[in-house]
C-alpha cells in the first residue's frame, strides 16, 4: 500500500482537452470537501478504533486494514471546524499521502462529482486568504431540495495530511 507513482491532482493536465476530474465529495460538519478520487483508495465502514494516548487531538486513533496499521484523523478536528460535537464515526476514507495511507474520518460520503476544469475556481485566482491545502472551490448539484447547487472545497490531500504530527 504505497503511494502511487503519479501525484493525485486536481489540476488538469494542460495537454488534455476535455479534462474531467473525478472528485469524492464528503461532508464534515456543515461543509462539503472534495478529495481527488485518484488519491482515495477505499471507503470503509468505521472499524473499531484504537485510541493512541498522547497523540494530538485530530488523531482519532489507529485501525487495522488487512494487516496494516492505519492512522485515522478526524477531518473536522483537523480543519478546526467549530459548531460540532464529536459524532459517531460516519465513514473512513483511505487516502494515499506520499509515503503512507491515512484514514480520514468524515461524517458522510456525499457523491463522486465529475468536475470540468472550467467549473473549478482555483484558489490562486481568488483574493481570499485560504489555507495552503485548499486548491479551490467548485459547485456541484445539490442533493437537497432546498438548493440546486452546493459549494465543495477542493482539498490537496498531500498538503493537508502530509507531514502531519
Amino acid at each position: 500500500m504505497t503511494a502511487g507513482a503519479q501525484r493525485a491532482t486536481l489540476v488538469p493536465d494542460p495537454g488534455s482537452q476535455d479534462a474531467t476530474i473525478p472528485v469524492l465529495a464528503v461532508a464534515a460538519g456543515t461543509e462539503l470537501y472534495g478529495f481527488p478520487l485518484s488519491a482515495v483508495r477505499e471507503i470503509l465502514m468505521p472499524p473499531p478504533l484504537t485510541e493512541v494516548p498522547r497523540a494530538a487531538n485530530h488523531f482519532l486513533g489507529v485501525i487495522a486494514v488487512r494487516g496494516e496499521i492505519v492512522t485515522v484523523v478526524d477531518l473536522s478536528e483537523l480543519l478546526r471546524l467549530e459548531d460540532r460535537d464529536r459524532q459517531p464515526l460516519g465513514r473512513v476514507i483511505l487516502v494515499d499521502v506520499a509515503e503512507e495511507l491515512i484514514g480520514v474520518a468524515v461524517d458522510r460520503v456525499v457523491q463522486v462529482a465529475q468536475l470540468q476544469s472550467d467549473q473549478i475556481e482555483y484558489a490562486s485566482a481568488m483574493s481570499a486568504d485560504l489555507s495552503e491545502y485548499v486548491v479551490g472551490v467548485a459547485r456541484i448539484p445539490s442533493e437537497s431540495v432546498a438548493t440546486s447547487e452546493e459549494m465543495v472545497i477542493l482539498i490537496d490531500p498531500r498538503a493537508l495530511l502530509g507531514g502531519l504530527t
Binding site: T50, F59, I63, A64, V70
Partner: peptide, 21 residues
C-alpha cells in the same frame, strides 16, 4: 507509521484478532 512516529512511548500496534488492536 510516519504520522504517529512523534508520539512517544509506543513501539507500534499489534492485531489481537477480531479487529482489536
Amino acid at each position: 507509521g510516519q504520522t504517529l512516529s512523534s508520539v512517544r512511548g509506543f513501539a507500534g500496534a499489534t492485531d489481537l484478532g477480531n479487529q482489536r488492536l
